[in-house]
């Protein structure tokens, strides 16, 4: 698990953003990614794999490994290392294969 160092951003110390990781509130530096928020939260996994159900946490943090897939603000399978945090953002682990919301109120078709 990772911890924040308040001394890292002396000029912007107060510019923290509150997000929710698996429902729990957490304050992270502005400019951090949603994946970083999950690592800072100490959550045991950001997703479980659709094949074997194995837990994963982010591996590369540069957008190539796709192990940081998470549900962000209700959108499944987002590459959380490429999504900067925003106030009130809700980050939920991606459990197995996503649900295709066919019976739901699907988003407006393009």
């Amino acid at each position: 698990m990772f911890r924040r160092r308040p001394e890292a951003r002396p000029a912007t110390q107060d510019r923290l953003v509150e997000v929710f990781v698996a429902g729990r509130p957490l304050r992270v530096p502005e400019g951090a990614s949603a994946a970083a928020a999950v690592l800072l939260s100490g959550a045991p996994a950001i997703r479980t794999t659709p094949v074997g159900g194995a837990p994963r946490l982010p591996y590369c943090m540069i957008g190539i490994c796709f192990d940081c897939l998470a549900e962000i603000d209700g959108v499944a399978n987002r590459q959380s290392c490429l999504v900067p945090v925003a106030p009130g953002m809700r980050i939920e682990p991606q459990i197995g294969a996503r649900v295709a919301r066919a019976d739901d109120t699907a988003p407006e078709a393009a």
Binding site: F2, R3, R4, R5, P6, E7, A8, R9, V28, P29, G31, A32, S33, A36, L39, L40, M61, I62, C81
Partner: peptide
């Protein structure tokens, strides 16, 4: 990257 983007270790 975590250090650079979030000051985290």
């Amino acid at each position: 990257i975590l250090l650079k983007t979030a000051g985290a270790v």
